[in-house]
Every structure is written in C-alpha cells, then in structure tokens.
Computed example of a mutant assay.
Amino acid sequence: MFNHYKEAANAQAQSGIKSADPLTQPLEQARQQQEQYFQTLNQDLPEVAKIEDRLIAGPSGEIPIRLVYPQTKEPTRYLIFIRGAGFWAGSLDSHARTMRTLALESGCVVCGIDYRRAPDFHFPVQRNEVIAVLEYLKSQQMSLGIHGKPVLFGESAGATIALSAAQALRDQNNDALAGLILFYNNAGGFKPEAREYSQWVWQQYLGPDTPLDDAQATPLLGSVTGLPPIWQGVGADDPLITDTNKLAHQLKAIGIDPQVKTFPNLPHGFLMWTGSLQPALDALRESVQVMKGFFTAE
C-alpha cells in the first residue's frame, strides 16, 4: 500500500494501459480502453458475502443494478453508489473495488447503478434512473434485506447526478434520503475556461436541447436549500476543486455547515485507488464514519 499518489500511479503505469481520450478516439474504442484501465485498479478484489445483479424497470428501459452484501445479517442499512467516469464511461464492473470496500467498511448493502451513458442519452435520463432505483429499493426493502432511508454516494459525475437527484426529490417534497456523500463533484457545469475534455463532457451530458445554464441539469445553478445533510470530499490537487468549494460556500451562505474535507496531495478520481493508495482508503473510511452519523441522525 503506497502513501503517495505518484508512487501508486507509477506502479499502475507498468500495466501499460492508459486512461482513454474520447476526444481523439472513437467513442466505443475509448470506452473499451477506459474499462481496461479501470480493471487495472480492480485487481485482487476483497471478498464480500454476496453479490446480486438485477434488471429493474426504468423510465428509459431496464436499468442494471448490482447489490453488494458485506455480510448475511439483515435487515441492513444501504447506500446507492453512483459512479463517475465523465458521464460517458464506466460500468458495474469499473468501480467494483469502490463498491466492495464501501460495503465492507460500512457494513451496509451497496447498490451500484449502471445508468445510461452520454452522449447516447442526455440529462435528465441519468438523474431519473437514480430516482427510479431509489423508489425500487424502497418498495423492495423486505425482500432485499435492507431498511431505512439510504445515502446517495456519488463520485465525480456521479456526485453531480446525486446532487441533481436530491434537488429533484426535494422539489417533489420527497424526503427519501438520509444524506449525500459527494466526492469531487463537477456540479458547476460547463465552463468556457475549462480544458477541452471538461467542456466536451458537459456538452455530451446536456445534449443539443438543454441550455448550458439549465439549473436542473447543473446543480450549482439551482437552489441548495431543503436538501438532506451533505458531506464533501476532494483532493487538494483536483482541478475541479472549485465546484466542491462553490457548493460549500452556497451551503454556508444559507446557514448550513458545509462539511467539506480537502485531502492533501490527492488528484481527481482518487477513490479508484483504495486498493493501492492508503490516503485514498483513509478518505473513504472517513466518509463512511460521516455516513453512519447520517443514519444515526435520521
């Protein structure tokens, strides 16, 4: 287990598989390469008690979900994990380590969602699929061995989708969540000054019919009042740290403790490295303790 990101990254680079670039590769080729890259971070996965894959009905067709059980004791609290990968990549397998580690560290059932990817599908499809999964789990708690209100746990693009879903639920007067754990969100939306990849990501997510300043699609342009408790984690070396800080400022402005932790020397996407980078594992464990507090306070 490495204590510094550069050491862990150098060791991973020996695999010879690099992160994909959808701006210079055909999209499907980039997705395949990105999946191979993710799998280099998913070696020697920790054992869990049970994994169950299901297909559930959703607003745009069936939604694949994966339930990760850390132990057989039930009923158990649960969380919904929403992956990042820029809205365009990733799968139920790409973040296998994160989901398993979350389950083992928290003692909760983790439900991962294989939401539809951009640009094949645009906002609000992804947000609405999260809400559909939330409703499904609530209706099936007894048969699934889970209970209570869940936490939405999102990282990167997944954190943005989680925040957007929480705002939509609030607008429906639906008090369905115990809280939000958001790692390095990109919820500030399209930025003309951002690097080309970041601009591309948001253009693909929004599609041609959603304005760049749409407040429902871009959570930090909307209201943050009336939301469940929020905790944020971000690396000090993350180029998207401004979005985390902006949400913190917005919460503070309305009298809410922003609950944000900046982790030194960590880049964007560091949760993927919990198998080889001790500070990443420590950050995940810290978020788990906060999540347990959300459950206790419910």
Rank of each mutant, 00 (worst) to 15 (best):
T210M: 09
T101C: 07
K261W: 03
L266Q: 09
R117K: 15
D243H: 07
G148Y: 04
I63G: 00
N10K: 13
A187W: 05
I56R: 06
S143K: 11
N42S: 11
G148A: 07
A253C: 03
K292F: 06
G16I: 10
L266N: 12
F190A: 02
A9P: 00
A297H: 14
N42L: 07
Q34E: 15
F295L: 13
E196D: 11
L79N: 00
T274N: 10
Q250M: 12
F183S: 07
A187H: 11
L163G: 06
A20E: 02
S276H: 06
A20W: 02
N173W: 03
T40Q: 08
K252P: 01
T98P: 00
V234P: 03
A187L: 11
I63T: 08
N128E: 15
P228T: 01
T72S: 14
V125Q: 06
G226Y: 02
E135P: 00
A236Q: 13
K138Q: 14
I17H: 05
Q141P: 06
S60V: 13
Q204E: 13
K6A: 13
A194L: 05
T160R: 05
V151K: 01
D238T: 10
P119Y: 13
C108L: 05
P267Y: 09
Y115M: 03
Q199E: 01
F190V: 05
